[in-house]
Nucleic acid binder design. Structure first.
Lengths: 250, 250
DNA sequence: ATTACAATTTTGCCTAGTCAAAAAAGAAGG
DNA sequence: CCTTCTTTTTTGACTAGGCAAAATTGTAAT
């Protein structure tokens, strides 16, 4: 099956875009411009292959990309239909605090405030999602940016999943970074909320009591096993989260 | 080029997984288990095709999926290498408030508090990202869940992008939903923060002044054009955001 | 030793087909 | 009219190749 390859590789050398991307862009344009409104059924792969002058698989790849991005839905025999009122989902990047502070050009430090190994009590078992009496490591610490309090961290680590943590003292290195470097995780869940700082929190963070704070709770798993639970408390004027909707990397 | 199709379609009819997904799962397992640590180079496509007994393109699709999920990086000649310390990015679904409230089994209403058409002043131009004196629609309103205040909304709409909004009164329907149904957007950015309710906010939301609130600011674009900016203020005890790390839909 | 060039490997993208499964549309029967 | 069976369209998954581009590796010349 010898074949002269696609025209673009020899003739139109200027545009570096692969053919399926061109086709993708062309179809996407019709959708976002509103020319093909929600519910519209696009031509079949065969038909598109004829009009674009390429193999069906190339069309399939372009349509597949649109489907990955939730711009269209594809069903056998039913065809490909436009999917307009897009679900509002954004990609929220939750950075390592140290990296974030250093990136801002400020010195970073982690100060350990409390450390205890215990068998999980009811509350621990609940927040960490492990059986009661499972050995856990409970940590409280402060993230400092430029020597000033930046965030308060309350963490539980499942020692069954991370036995190496038992002997670690977390001097200098934050538990988050320590864990990240050691154990790969497969799932994570974040909950973001707000709270009024109570007296203890306000003291550690050097803010006035009752100041609004942003809280981020994170649970991480490796496949089915819970690894750690952490709650971070940021004074409202020191932190914002940015989430950006992003097409999946084309 | 006549060929008996893959074995799984005739012999192993039990497992519904396509071949490339099986291969994907098998490779992913090696990575998340740590057998192939970060930096490890996996076998070439040709080699994998031989070991798995399939065409190179099937392997390519499996590896492509891994690459889409950022588990590996692929470069010509350099091969495919494991990409372990995964960037912490989560998918945050920011729902339409109405849908969210109705889903919780509570009645929903939107109450308009203020509405003004004006030429963008300095502050408007800044938050909406348009030129000064561009016509904008400024709205303030309250989202009610079960008759009680749920969230306060402050919105600016670029009338150049959405001229139909000029004559809309937003009775019953919330501006967010109205916009979502009408104009497709291509980019969105969210900023999440916390604040202490001031007197006015506290009154509208029927909470005590100084209560911590979660704020979500959203900017939406259609390609390069700004469509709207909105700030939603939720009392801290009434709302949490949940972001889940998710592999991109396989 | 360093630089420049050539060879080789590996992925990226493509073609032109096949077989299979899903679902819609049409036909037939009650 | 409604149900059931059959046909047909359309996507899903795959094969077995091919050429091109990128990056590494090896080689030769300065």
């Amino acid at each position: 099956m010898t074949m002269s390859n696609r025209a673009s590789s020899s003739s139109a050398r200027a545009n570096a875009l692969p053919r399926y991307r061109e086709i993708y862009a062309s179809l996407r344009e019709k959708i976002v411009s509103g020319e093909w409104p929600a519910g519209h059924r696009l031509p079949s792969e065969h038909e598109l292959a004829r009009t674009f002058g390429c193999a069906r698989m190339t069309i399939s790849k372009a349509l597949g990309t649109l489907a990955d991005q939730r711009l269209v839905t594809r069903r056998r025999r039913a065809g490909t239909t436009v999917n307009m009122p897009r679900p509002q989902e954004s990609v929220l990047e939750i950075h390592d605090i140290e990296a974030e502070i250093v990136a801002a050009g400020v010195s970073y430090a982690y100060e350990s405030l409390a450390r205890q190994i215990r068998r999980a009590n009811g509350s621990d078992a609940n927040t960490l999602g492990v059986a009661s009496a499972t050995p856990v490591l409970a940590l409280t610490g402060l993230h400092l940016a430029g020597g000033r309090p930046h965030a308060l961290e309350e963490r539980l680590i499942n020692l069954q999943a991370v036995p190496e943590a038992r002997s670690e003292r977390f001097h200098g290195i934050s538990p988050g970074r320590w864990l990240l470097q050691r154990i790969p995780w497969t799932e994570a869940e974040h909950q973001i909320g707000a709270l009024n700082a109570d007296a203890a929190v306000a003291r550690w963070l050097a803010i006035r009591p009752h100041t609004a704070c942003l809280t981020i709770e994170r649970n991480t798993w490796r496949d089915a096993q819970r690894i750690t639970h952490v709650r971070l408390i940021y004074p409202c004027d020191q932190h914002r989260l940015v989430a950006r909707f992003r097409y999946r990397p084309l």
